[in-house]
Design a binder for these strands. Structure first.
Lengths: 245, 245
DNA sequence: CGTATAATTGAGGCGAGTCAAATGCCGTGG
DNA sequence: CCACGGCATTTGACTCGCCTCAATTATACG
């Protein structure tokens, strides 16, 4: 159950403002800035640390800050009054929080594992983007990328069978881990089965049974619940019902 | 079955270049341009007419032109090798085609009913956007709006029961019709049951049965298959499982 | 009026969800 | 070091509802 403790501590800027040498910069919004422009960003930048399951912001609350995830993983979710939940995406280092939101957050953001983020006042970031057109362009491109992911997700949610959903989930996560230069053998899945279920529109039991089935078919190995070794990517893609990925 | 006949005729520019008096301009990309800037747009603008079910472009084909829908309705869809289909959205006048696509179209676009569109060469539109920053901003805002819709769709596909799906679909379509200043009583739904099913992740039989059920519950009336009168919006929202919309 | 397509309705099976229990995994505290 | 408690995961049994298959009705078009 997500902790509601808002004890996120802002720590000294020095701890994180080495944008020059920042590993995740190439994936992030700030990739649009040259070395000479980085100080402009660092000037308005803060840092945030989140414990596992800590809430960063909640659906419906006023939006004052935007974020870039620098380490860890964040889940974005929508909730229904009766408690049902849809996770719309898992964010990885470099991803931006606040692509679609306007004056209020439209989704809830929670850390999956301990995470760190750069944070910006929305007003100051808007002003900075007016001064650096490349930033605006980069944000637009990231929004387009998010839209492509959401469309793919619509297909997965609406038209794939449970095994196909889980198989494509594994392939997508593996591809994204590779993009981020993370070791993907075995693939580390930090989120819980409940998270995966709420992302794929299934129940945790169905997710668990599907993992077991894929394992018994020899397509994956499960050394531990959060580690998945993809044995046969080709066959897994066939199960996913798609040639892509 | 969608016609594959590519007989879309470009007709004289005069027929559609009265951008000044264009009804759908306020909804469209070109709302960002002042009266003095419109000629710049008209100079690179073409027109396209589509018959019902005619394909405008197909998933995977090279992308050379972008479009703004000016009348009618277009469906965007993704397909699986085995023929399964997910409709990601229904476009209404003012909507832009090509928000997320790059050098190839990622989705298939087909007319639901006879439709007209303004068309632009991607290269020329890109150039125009460099000259008019407001255009770029407007396109970004439209991309953000599309992302919000896609997120809502993820929730609907992943976590709502069939009756809830159909109920929210009706409410969303009614709200969008109202935005566009279209009469929404009775609400006209030009798309087929198959389209609705492929949009909501259901079968046509389930969609049809759900309509019948909502009718027998007195929440809607169905004077004809493509006309829906929402009798009790409050109750329908309750069925949708949500307070919003 | 006749045909083709769309929509509705019906009957039945299967599979994902529900409910329930068991197992495994950690971290805490005795 | 071990016992305990909480939580995540797995597994089992069963139900119900959506999908499948099929037939009928309605609608549009020639």
């Amino acid at each position: 159950m997500p902790s509601l403790v808002y004890s996120r501590k802002a720590f000294p800027r020095e701890a994180c403002n080495a944008c020059q040498g920042c590993e995740t910069r190439r994936m992030a919004l700030c990739a649009a800035l040259g070395p000479d422009e980085l100080p402009d960003l660092e000037r308005i930048m803060g840092s945030t640390r989140l414990d596992a399951n800590q809430v960063l912001f909640e659906e419906g609350s006023p939006r004052r800050r935007a974020y870039t995830l620098t380490s860890g993983m964040v889940r974005l979710s929508l909730a229904l009054p009766d408690g049902r939940r849809q996770i719309t995406g898992f964010l990885m280092p470099g991803d931006y929080l606040g692509l679609a939101d306007d004056d209020t957050y439209l989704q809830t953001a929670e850390a999956v594992v301990p995470s760190t983020l750069c944070s910006f006042s929305v007003a100051e970031m808007d002003a900075l983007m007016e001064r650096h057109g490349h930033l605006k362009d980069r944000l637009h491109e990231m929004t387009r990328q998010a839209l492509r992911q959401a469309r793919e997700s619509q297909m997965i949610l609406g038209r794939l069978a449970p095994s196909e959903k889980v198989a494509s989930f594994l392939l997508v996560m593996a591809a994204r881990a590779a993009e981020h230069g993370l070791a993907d053998d075995p693939l580390h899945l930090p989120m819980t089965r409940t998270d995966i279920a709420d992302y794929l529109g299934l129940t945790i039991e169905t997710v668990s049974r599907t993992f077991t089935k894929l394992k018994s078919q020899g397509l994956i190995r499960l050394p531990e619940p959060h580690s998945v070794e993809i044995v046969d990517k080709r066959l897994l893609a066939a199960v996913a019902g798609i040639g892509n990925y």
